[in-house]
Structures are given as structure tokens and as C-alpha cells.
Design a protein around this nucleic acid. Structure first.
Length: 987
RNA sequence: GGGCUGGUAGCUCAGCUGGUUAGAGCGCACGACUGAUAAUCGUGAGGUCGGAGGUUCGAGUCCUCCUCGGCCCA
């Protein structure tokens, strides 16, 4: 006899009555109802760390097929925000779910380390110390950038681990480790070697004062007074072939600009098909300089009056000019012949950016001095070349703001030397004046004035900046490659060959690739992998494998800093090449090229990964970013995408669906959620949301997930309590009651849902089905019904043993299925049930034998539950009328006139299923006034009280209470159970 | 302005190729139990399916426009 048994006896003798609760198999568990996740989760992180879970996962799965989700690298410059949390949680659920389904799902996290934002931070630190970036040796600056990135990698690593992310955090990949830098450089050299890399040019924002390129974010807009001029372009040919002799052929097209110094760079005039134009003639002139009566000019109708007024002219409108007439038209440059240059044709080009809000309706287009000018020019480059118009963009202004030889008459060839746009202090130079004088001399000036407007200024020096054509390194999108394809065609093919989840990603990426311009790789910056090539004056690349080899070996050993070290040029060129005839390029690579190359040094080079990756997963903004650059890089060097599947997620919005922002104070920080509620709550939110679209997050939504979490946790807790009494006795499937078979059938069905759900990355479908199952079928039905047998039945009861076994099956499956989603809670539950186990994360999803599937049984029990609904509905009336409290006080009459419904309950203990003490079923029609449900025909219930006494042990009201003299206050079933327990010494 | 995309009960989601009074869970209200107890069970109230037109015998589901929102460009 056990101590407990003695205690029970003792208490019983004292009170003269047994406390039967001690004789029941009530749930017992240490698994707490309240999770305390903020405290518990870090303990589990430490446990996994100590046991080396990552390594064990790899060892366990070493013979299984590899499944690789390649991590898109976050930028190493700050704490993680909600977007990082969403992203990493999704990735973690994917790798864990594949790991638990027969794969070796290795996850190697990575970081993007180079680039502008980190440079800014370091520069900011410099300024705080009164230091100037330009006075610091490049490699010292780069070293500080490296240390900065390393610091944030450490911080983010801890934050990701705290989220429950499992991966190789001891050996992540970074774009700045030496091997990565060498490989990135190597990839660039592949583009160079295959001829895909070329030197072109592009206007960029340039600060003359600082002699540096500026990014859009480094510019601020301030008020500024500019010189405005209206310039006449004589029409050369009304059609590009020169054959037309219309009334436009002796007219002028007039443009307006606030940057006269860009006139030498003019190469085209843009017009819009949405604007109404007219041909005008001057009828009277106030001045004897400038336009004179008889001159014909073309303007946008909306701007003609204002323009003529400005030039103090009277005019008449001759006729409408349709936009179509401009197609193919060419003009002379207004300075043609000046300084021996400007003899080229100036074509008119259609441009979407042209408006008739200000100016003349024609936009002076200097492709070297404006982004839109450049885009329009490049967009038409093929057409223009076909008409023998050279599309080379002149470098009219140098880095100090002086005109060059590309601006004949204004550069070094000018009397008195080159004119200057801005001086060293940022003040206007003499360039505008020189240009205006030349225009006057050429009788090309229509009018002039001044304009106050906002103009970009450097945020450091607060001085105006200019758009200036600068040599840049590009990759051809449309160059014919050796195999008859182009980079663009390869990329489009690769998009077709890739699975996109959701599908819209494919459309979006394709649209971008279809009309993107050539890929600009160069940045005039310091912190990055250099474009490690040598070029001659014309931009031709030095091609020498030996040089390349020296470069890559040096990078491998010393990092890319080697490129910037003293003597690097001579070192890499070696003895075979004359340093004087080659320029060492000092631009660095666009960071998108870095991250676009992660597949090479991570997937290809690590023996524990593979190329291509099974899946890439990032936010939808990465169609322009990582998905895009990885695709181009890989197609350019390997001919296909580095991924088989691309998954995208939306962005996290505040609760009202708007963007989270500091100013609106509606941000949610993952650190806060973890500290207050736990990482599993955040993870559950991710699981319940439609991540393919934008998601919302806020207090209400967090609370909804906390509630759902509690329900799941309590259901699992009850199973753990009940399974405390599981002694592992097995019951043959064929011997099981129908109710148990029904639950096994449901497990079989759920197994399908779960596996298909994970395959489709459709997590909300899984979590929805599992939560509904727990709430509707377990808590509210199966467990409720089976409590009587599980708590009260004798140890030998087959029903009890079968139920225990089924609960065991349910537990193992639910916990493993949910483990990828809620790794902390499921680990806690698993270890509570199996104290000697290492980790639930080393488990596989359990098989559900096809024997369990029984569709007929499920259909039958659907009807059973229909009948049950009518019974519980009737009992609710009784309860409301205070005739009963517990359903065990009732023993209703059920009249079933529907044959199918009656057949479904044939042979079943409906009292047990309805949790009443008794039930009488008849096929006779019910008397008037019987309870029915509107949506159930053929079932009526007449309530009745159960007859007999209440069993002190099971609380059922039966007529056999007291039939056993040994236990006079319990029913016969309970008396038998007590006797059996007694004989086993259980009490 | 362009490309892609979304708006179904307080919250999160189902609603397949158009077909009966639009569903679920949670929350809420009310009730029961007191042997899952800061739990559990039951019942109920919540929706002009963003708005307006149109196609159709019939539209949350198809078309057009509008509106609000998101990502990426300009």
C-alpha cells in the first residue's frame, strides 16, 4: 500500500467518507498554466546553446537530402525591427518544418556589411571628434567601418537567437570577410573577362566644394537664385531624313533652363504628346536685339504669352503644331560653330517628364546634367545611333567645376582659361556669363531672367551641388553573349523557371527586368569591395589572368583593403605592364553586387550547403533588391537563377493599416513584445497572419494572439496532465471505440493539412486548422466526453487505455507539428512529457498510418454531432430555467424521425457522448413543444431529470448507486473501479 | 504619374471555376460547472463583403470608375 493510499484511508476514516477525488485519474502536471515566456525562453535558448542543438541537428540529418533556404543578409547597422523579426521567423519556420520532415535543412545566417549607411555613421563619429574623413587614410577608415559592422552583427545575432531562430550563428556568412571580398571581386572579374563590364558614364550629384559624389540622401534643398534663359534652337530638318520643307523648317524651338552652363552639354530637346503646341510669329519687338519681327517660334500654347511678354515681344499664332510633327525633327545646337564645335544634330525626343507648367513646353536635354535627361537620352540611344547621331555623353565639367575640352570655346581652349560653374567656396563662377554671352553672340538668346527656387545643396558644406557626367562601370543588359542570349533574356528565362510564392512576385520581377537599363556597378565611395580593374584612357580593360590572380590571392589573404594599400598598382600590375599606361579604378562596387554574390561564397563554397538554393525569402521590396541583383549576377556568370523558389512577404503596418512611424508613435518593437509577452507570441502572430500581403500589428492584435496562445497551451497542459497516467499500454486499432477511431481519422486528415501547408509555406492554414481542432474537437468535444472514462474508469478499462493512447498520439503530433512555429513552448511541453528527451526539435513529424483514415466513420460522426447539438441545445434551456446545472443531472428523451441520423447513433452510448447521466432514444415523433433546432430536421428533445442518486465519485446520477455494499455512495461502475484500484494497492 | 498589390463581423482569417438566409476561431454579453479553475463547457449578439455603376435569371466572387492603404520606381 502506498503512502497516498494510506492518506486517503486516513482522511476517509476521519470524515467518515472517502474523498474520491484522490481515487480518480485527474490530470497532474508541472507544466504551468501561465507560461512566463519572457523568463522561460532565455533559459531554453541557453539550453540549446549548451547542448549544441545546431550541431546535433546537422549530425542527425547528415544522410538526409539537403534543403537550403539561403538567407538574405540584413544590414549590420542597428537593432532589429519588426520587419527583421517577421523575416527571420518565417525563415526559421521553413527550415524547422523541413528539418522535421526528412530533410537536412541547414540555415546559415548572413550579414550585408559594406555601404553608405555605415560610412555615414563613422563619418558622424569623426565629426563629433572634430576629425575630417578626407584626412584619414582610406584603410584606416575602412577598418573602422569593419569594426562597426562587426559590432552590430554581434548584437543582431543575440536578438535573432532570442527570437528562437536556429541556425549556424557561430559561422555565419558576411560580405566583409576576406574570402567573401575575394569572391565578390572574382565575380566582378568574370563580368570583366566576358566583356559584359564596360565603362560608360552617367550624371551624378557632385559637390565641387568637397570634390565628392553625393547620394540623394546627402542632399538638402535650399532656396537659391538661378540665372534663367530662354534659348532658340533653329530647326534643321523637320524630319530626321532632312527631306521635309514644311513651314517649320525656318522656325525655332525655344527651351528654358535655369542652368545656362549646361547648354554646351545639350544634346536633345524633349517634348510631350500631352501638350498643345503652336507656331508663333513675332510681330513687333521693343528691343533691337533679340528676336525680331518675322521670326517664327514654337511654344507650348499654355506658355507662349508669358514667354513673349518676358522677351517684350508682340506675336501672333500662325497655327497649331501637333506633337507628331516633332517626331523625327532635328535642330542645330544654338552654339553651332562656336569654338569650332556643336556641329551635331539636336533631335527632338518624346519625354513623359515634360509639362507645360513652366518654361516653354520643351525641355533642354543635357544627358550629362540631369537624371531625366540621361534617361530620355539612353532610352532612345538605339534609334539615335541608327540615324548616325552619336550618343556618347560629353564630360563638359570636371571635378573642380571647370569646363573641359568637351565644351568647346569654354574649356582650356578659351581665352583666359576654362570657365567655371562653381568655385572652391561654392560661389557661382563665370560659366553662366560665358555661355550667355556666346548665345547672344550667336543670336540664340530669346530672353533672360532670374529665378528663386529650391536647389540641391550638400548637407555637409551647405553649398550648391551640380549634376555632372562621371565615368561609371556598367554591365550590359542586351549585349549578345556567346550562347546567343543576353543577360536580360537569360534573366527573363530564369524568372519563368522559378516558383514564386505568391505568384505576383513573378509578374513584378519580370516587369522590372524587362525594362531596366544597364546595371551601374560603380559607386564613388570608400567602404566596399573595389572595382578591381585597370583601364586605359579610353576605358578599355586590362585583361591578364595573372594580374587577376594576384588581386584575388591578395584579397583572400588581406581583404579588399589590399587594393587601397600603398603600392597596390605596381604590385598587381607586376613587371609585365607599365603603370603609366593604366589607371587603377578606385570606385567601389554597388552593395547590391555584394549581396547579389552571396550565393557564390555561401552556397557554392560551403560544403554544408548547395547551389542553387531551394528558396530565397524576403520582403517584397527585394524585387528591386536582392532577388534582382542575385538573379542578374547569377545569370551573368552561371546562366541561371541561384534559387528554385522565391517567397515574398509584405510589410508590417500599424493597427490602422498605415505605416509604422516614429512620429505617429505606433511602432511595435520586437524587443518589447519579447520582454512583455514572449517570442512565441510574436511567432504566433506571424503564423496567424497573411504574410504574403501587408500585415498589421498592434496591442489588440497582440492580445488576440495571447488569447489564442493560452487556449493552445491549456489544451496541451490538459493532455500532459492526463498522460501522467499513461503507462504505455497499447490497444489494437481494431479494438478501439469508434470515438477513438474518429480522432485518429482526424489526425490522419490533419497530417495531410500540415504537410501540404508546410509545402506551400501556408502557415496560417496550418495554425488555423490546428487551433480549430484543439478548440472545437478536443477541448469542447473529445476531452469533455472522455473525461469520465479517463478520470473514473478502472485501470483495466479498455476504453480508458484506448483514450490514453489516442491522447498520446494527439500530443506527439500536435507538439511536433507546432514545434517549428512555437519552438519554445513546444520544447517545454515535450520535455515535460519526456524528461529524458534531448529536444523536440530533434524529432520528426509522426507518421499517421493510412489505417487511421476512415471517411465513412467521419461522415457518420458528423451526424452524431448534429444530434448532440440538439441535445445540448435542449439542456441549455433547462439550465437557463434553473432546472439543471450540470448536464449530468439530465437524462433527456431524444426523438429521431430522420432515418440517416437515427442510424448514425445506432449502438452508441449517447448519454456518454452528450455528457448526460442517461438518454432515451426513440423513433416516434416527439410530442408538441419538444425542443428542436432550426437547421436540424427530424430530431427533437424532451428534457427530463436523471433518475437515481448522484454518484459521489463520478457525479453521474444513476439508479445503481448503492448497489455495491462495500461502496454505498457510488455507482456500480465506480465501485468496480475502486475495488480494482484497491486490489492494486492504489488506495 | 507608372509597375505590382490589397480593403469580408472589435481582432485574425475561410469563402474553389459567380448559385439557397456570408462562415470559423478569438474577443464581447449572458449562463453553467467548480475534479483543465486567473481554467473548462454552453448560448447569444456582432457584417449594406471599402464606395458607385455595369454584365447576369443570379455577384463577396466577373467588368469599369472612384476611394483608402502598401511596396518599388518616377
Amino acid at each position: 500500500m502506498t503512502d497516498t493510499a494510506q492518506e486517503i484511508r486516513k482522511e476517509a476514516s476521519e470524515e467518515g467518507k472517502l474523498d474520491y477525488s484522490k481515487t480518480l485519474y485527474l490530470p497532474q502536471t508541472e507544466f504551468p498554466m501561465r507560461a512566463g515566456l519572457p523568463k522561460k525562453e532565455p533559459e531554453l535558448v541557453a539550453r540549446w546553446q549548451e547542448m549544441g542543438l545546431y550541431k546535433q541537428l546537422r549530425d542527425d540529418a547528415k544522410d538526409r537530402p539537403l534543403y537550403v533556404l539561403h538567407d538574405g543578409p540584413p544590414y549590420a547597422n542597428g537593432n532589429i525591427h519588426i520587419g527583421h523579426a517577421l523575416n527571420k521567423i518565417l525563415k526559421d519556420v521553413i527550415t524547422r518544418s523541413f528539418q522535421m520532415r526528412g530533410y537536412n535543412a541547414n540555415y546559415v545566417p548572413g550579414w550585408d556589411c559594406h555601404g553608405l549607411p555605415i560610412e555615414w555613421k563613422i563619418e558622424e563619429q569623426y565629426r563629433a571628434k572634430g576629425k575630417n574623413k578626407d584626412e584619414v587614410p582610406v584603410n584606416e577608415f575602412r577598418k573602422e567601418c569593419r569594426e562597426f559592422a562587426a559590432h552590430w552583427i554581434e548584437v543582431q545575432t543575440e536578438e535573432f537567437k532570442r527570437l528562437g531562430i536556429e541556425g549556424d550563428f557561430d559561422q555565419p556568412y558576411t560580405t566583409m570577410n576576406f574570402h567573401a571580398e575575394a569572391r565578390i571581386a572574382g565575380e566582378l572579374l568574370k563580368f570583366a573577362k566576358s566583356g559584359q563590364l564596360y565603362r560608360g558614364s552617367k550624371p551624378i550629384m557632385w559637390s565641387v566644394v568637397e570634390r565628392t559624389a553625393l547620394a540623394e540622401a546627402e542632399v538638402e534643398y535650399q532656396d537659391y537664385e538661378s540665372d534663367a534663359i530662354w534659348v532658340k534652337f533653329p530647326v534643321k530638318a523637320a524630319a530626321r531624313d532632312g527631306g521635309d520643307a514644311s513651314d517649320l523648317s525656318d522656325a525655332f524651338v525655344v527651351i528654358w533652363t535655369t542652368t545656362p552652363w549646361t547648354i554646351p552639354g545639350n544634346r536633345a530637346i524633349a517634348y510631350s504628346s500631352r501638350i498643345a503646341y503652336g507656331l508663333y510669329e513675332v510681330t513687333a519687338a521693343e528691343n533691337d536685339f533679340g528676336p525680331q519681327p518675322g521670326e517664327k517660334l514654337i511654344f507650348a500654347d499654355a506658355l507662349a504669352e508669358e514667354s513673349f511678354a518676358k522677351a517684350k515681344l508682340e506675336y501672333k499664332r500662325l497655327r497649331e503644331v501637333k506633337a507628331e510633327e516633332f517626331a523625327g525633327m532635328t535642330c542645330h545646337h544654338p552654339l553651332h560653330g562656336f569654338g569650332g564645335g556643336y556641329e551635331f544634330l539636336v533631335p527632338l525626343l518624346p519625354g513623359e517628364h515634360v509639362t507645360d507648367d513652366a518654361g516653354t513646353g520643351f525641355v533642354h536635354t543635357a544627358p550629362g546634367h540631369g537624371r531625366e535627361d540621361f534617361d530620355v537620352w539612353m532610352h532612345h540611344s538605339r534609334d539615335l545611333e541608327a540615324c548616325n547621331i552619336a550618343t556618347t555623353i560629353p564630360f563638359t565639367v570636371d571635378d573642380a567645376g571647370f569646363f573641359t575640352r568637351d565644351a568647346p570655346g569654354f574649356g582650356p581652349d578659351r581665352e583666359g582659361g576654362a570657365a567655371r560653374v562653381l568655385d572652391d567656396k561654392g560661389k557661382k563662377g563665370d560659366a553662366n556669363r560665358a555661355v550667355i554671352e556666346a548665345l547672344i553672340g550667336a543670336d540664340a538668346l530669346f530672353a533672360r531672367g532670374r529665378l528663386k527656387h529650391t536647389y540641391p545643396h550638400s548637407w555637409r558644406s551647405k553649398k550648391p551641388v551640380i549634376f555632372r557626367n562621371t565615368p561609371q562601370w556598367f554591365v550590359h543588359m542586351d549585349m549578345d553573349l556567346e550562347d546567343g542570349t543576353t543577360l536580360r533574356s537569360r534573366a527573363l528565362k530564369a524568372i519563368d523557371d522559378t516558383r514564386f510564392v505568391p505568384k505576383a512576385g513573378q509578374t513584378r520581377l519580370r516587369a522590372m527586368i524587362e525594362d531596366r537599363p544597364d546595371w551601374v556597378l560603380s559607386r564613388q565611395r570608400a567602404w566596399g569591395v573595389p572595382i578591381c580593374v585597370f583601364a586605359d584612357e579610353d576605358g578599355n580593360l586590362l585583361r591578364d589572368d595573372a594580374v587577376d590572380k594576384r588581386i584575388l590571392q591578395a584579397f583572400e589573404a588581406e581583404g579588399a583593403d589590399a587594393w587601397f594599400a600603398d603600392g597596390a598598382k605596381e604590385r598587381f600590375l607586376g613587371n609585365e605592364h607599365d603603370p603609366a599606361s593604366w589607371t587603377q579604378v578606385t570606385d567601389i562596387l554597388d552593395v547590391w553586387f555584394d549581396s547579389g554574390s552571396t550565393h557564390t561564397f555561401t552556397l557554392e563554397d560551403r560544403p554544408d550547403l548547395k547551389w542553387p538554393a531551394d528558396v530565397y525569402l524576403e520582403g517584397s521590396d527585394q524585387h528591386r533588391g536582392w532577388f534582382h541583383s542575385s538573379l542578374l549576377e547569377s545569370c551573368g556568370t552561371r546562366g541561371r537563377a541561384p534559387y528554385e523558389t522565391v517567397i515574398t512577404h509584405g510589410f508590417t503596418m500599424a493597427e490602422d493599416g498605415r505605416k509604422m512611424s516614429k512620429s505617429l508613435n505606433n511602432q511595435v518593437f520586437p524587443q518589447d513584445v519579447m520582454a512583455k509577452s514572449g517570442a512565441d507570441i510574436l511567432r504566433l502572430w506571424v503564423m496567424n497572419t497573411d504574410y504574403w500581403e501587408d500585415q498589421r500589428l498592434g496591442q489588440t492584435i497582440i492580445q488576440t494572439n495571447i488569447d489564442a496562445y493560452r487556449k493552445m497551451r491549456n489544451t496541451i497542459r490538459w493532455m500532459l496532465g492526463t498522460l501522467t497516467h499513461d503507462e504505455g499500454e497499447s490497444v489494437e486499432y481494431s479494438d478501439m471505440p469508434e470515438l477513438e477511431k474518429l480522432m485518429l481519422h482526424r489526425l490522419w486528415e490533419l497530417d495531410q493539412v500540415v504537410r501540404k501547408g508546410y509545402d506551400a509555406f501556408d502557415f496560417k492554414r496550418i495554425s488555423r486548422h490546428l487551433l480549430d481542432f484543439m478548440v472545437l474537437e478536443l477541448s469542447a468535444f473529445y476531452f469533455d466526453v472522455r473525461k469520465d472514462a479517463l478520470y473514473c474508469d478502472a485501470p483495466s478499462s479498455l476504453k480508458r487505455k484506448a483514450a490514453l493512447q489516442v491522447v498520446h498520439h494527439i500530443f506527439d503530433r500536435l507538439v511536433t507539428w507546432l514545434a517549428p512555429m512555437l519552438p519554445f513552448t513546444m520544447e517545454e511541453a515535450w520535455l515535460s512529457r519526456y524528461p529524458d528527451a534531448k529536444s523536440v526539435h530533434l524529432e520528426q513529424f509522426r507518421e499517421c498510418p493510412s489505417e487511421w483514415r476512415d471517411d465513412a466513420l467521419a461522415a457518420k460522426w458528423k451526424k452524431v454531432r448534429t444530434v448532440r447539438r440538439v441535445v445540448t441545445g435542449a439542456l441549455e434551456i433547462e439550465r437557463r430555467e434553473k432546472r439543471i446545472g450540470s448536464s449530468l443531472e439530465a437524462a433527456p428523451f431524444v426523438h429521431i424521425t430522420d432515418d440517416l441520423l437515427r442510424d448514425s447513433i445506432e449502438g452508441l452510448d449517447m448519454a456518454e457522448i452528450c455528457i448526460t447521466s442517461g438518454i432515451s432514444v426513440s423513433s416516434r415523433p416527439a410530442p408538441a413543444g419538444a425542443f428542436t433546432l432550426g437547421d436540424v430536421n427530424g430530431v427533437s428533445v424532451v428534457p427530463a431529470m436523471a433518475e437515481g442518486r448522484k454518484c459521489a465519485r463520478s457525479w453521474r446520477v444513476t439508479s445503481d448507486v448503492g448497489s455495491d455494499p462495500e461502496f454505498p455512495d457510488v455507482s456500480a461502475r465506480d465501485a468496480d473501479a475502486l475495488r480494482e484500484l484497491k486490489s492494486l494497492g492504489r488506495f
